[in-house]
Write a protein that binds this DNA or RNA. Structure first.
Lengths: 187, 187
DNA sequence: CGCAACATACCAACCAAAAGGTATGTTGCA
DNA sequence: TGCAACATACCTTTTGGTTGGTATGTTGCG
C-alpha cells in the first residue's frame, strides 16, 4: 500500500488491508508477532492510523475473528446448500469446512493464534455464541451423540493439523475426511 | 513459601514450587500472565532466584511441559495396565487420561496456555516426539483408522472443554467418554 | 457557485509500564 | 573457606497507547 499522501482516501480499503495484514502476520509469526506496530507497518500505515480504525488492539483482534467466523459460516452455508440429505447436513458441512479451511503453509504459529485469541473473553464469546446458535438451529437434524463425536473428531483433526511439527503432514487428511462424512450417513 | 532467609536451603523444593506456581498462574491467567516476575513472586523467590534454576524463560516453559507430558504418560501407562483387552488399549487409555486430566476451574485461559506453548518449537517437538513414539510402540494394537478417529474426538472434546465460555460445561462429558471407549471395542 | 466551517483520516513523536535478562552483591551450608 | 543458593539493583527493549498536529475531504450558507 502506498503512503497516505500518494493514494486516494479510502478508509474502508485501509481497514480491510489492516485486517488482512494482521491475519497474515498472526498466521506467520503467531500471536507474539501480532503487534500493532508490525500490522500498521505491513499495511503501509502508522500506528496512529491503525488506532484511528481500531480503538484498541483488542478491537483489532475481535475484527480479525469476526471475519474468520463469517468466512467459516459462509463455507458451511454453501456446503449445506449442496447436500440433499437432511440428517447430519450441518455436521457434514462442518467437517468439510473444517478440512477445507486448514491454513496451509507453515502451521505451528497458526495454532497459537487461534487458541490464544480465545483467551480473550470477547472472542471466546463470539465463537461460543456462533456455535451454540448453529447447534440450536440444526437441532432437528444434527442433535445426535454420534454426530457430536464426528464434529469433535473434526476439531481434533484441525488441532492435529495445526500442531504438526515442521513439514510432518497429517497422514491421510483426505481419507479421514471421507471417513468422518461416511460416519454421518451410515450410523 | 517462606522467604529464603527463613527456610532451610532446599533447591529441589524451590524448583518444584516454581514449576507448580508457573502452572497455576498460566492456567489462571493464560500465557500472558506467565511472567517470570509473577512466577518468582508466587513462589516466594526473587527473579534472580528463578533465573538461577532456569537459565531463561523458555527453559521454564519447557520444564512445565516436560512435567505435563510425564504426567500424561504416567496416567496412560496406569490405565493401560488395568486394561485386559489388547486391541485399542492405548487409544482407550488416551481417552481416559484426556478426560481425567481436564483442568477444572475456569477454563478459557488454559486453552491459550496449552496451544500457545506449542508455538515454541521446542515444546512442539517434545509433544510430537512423545506422540509419535507412543504411536509407534502400540502400532500393533492401535493402528486403525477407526481408533485414530476416536483419539481425535478425544482431542476435540479436550479442546471443547478448554474453550467453553464461562460456566457453560460440556454437556455430557462422562457419556461422551464412555461412548468413545465403546467405539474402540465394538468396531 | 464559492467559501467558510467542520469532520474525517491520517502522521510523527513521545510516554509510561512491563517485559526478559544481567551484573553484582549477600547468605548459609558442607 | 568456598561454593551453591539466593537477593538487589539496574539495564534494554518492546509494548500498547496518547497527544498534537496536518492534510484531505464534506457540508452548510450567502
Amino acid at each position: 500500500m502506498k503512503t497516505a499522501s500518494q493514494r486516494k482516501k479510502d478508509p474502508e480499503l485501509v481497514r480491510r488491508t489492516l485486517l488482512d495484514c494482521a491475519m497474515r502476520l498472526a498466521l506467520e509469526h503467531g500471536p507474539a508477532g501480532l503487534t500493532v506496530q508490525a500490522v500498521a507497518e505491513a499495511a503501509g500505515v502508522t500506528k496512529g492510523g491503525l488506532f484511528h480504525h481500531f480503538p484498541s488492539k483488542q478491537a483489532l483482534v475481535e475484527g480479525l475473528f469476526a471475519d474468520l467466523v463469517e468466512k467459516l459460516d459462509a463455507d458451511i452455508e454453501a456446503a449445506m446448500a449442496k447436500d440433499p440429505q437432511p440428517r447430519g447436513s450441518f455436521t457434514r458441512a462442518y467437517v468439510r469446512a473444517t478440512f477445507d479451511d486448514l491454513p496451509q503453509g507453515q502451521g505451528n504459529p497458526a495454532a497459537a493464534l487461534y487458541v490464544s485469541a480465545l483467551a480473550e473473553p470477547s472472542v471466546l464469546r463470539m465463537w461460543a455464541d456462533w456455535f451454540t446458535a448453529r447447534l440450536e438451529r440444526h437441532r432437528a437434524t444434527d442433535d445426535e451423540p454420534s454426530l457430536e463425536i464426528v464434529r469433535m473428531a473434526a476439531d481434533g483433526a484441525w488441532l492435529a493439523h495445526l500442531m504438526r511439527a515442521d513439514g510432518a503432514a497429517v497422514p491421510d487428511a483426505a481419507g479421514l475426511r471421507e471417513r468422518l462424512i461416511a460416519m454421518t450417513l451410515t450410523d
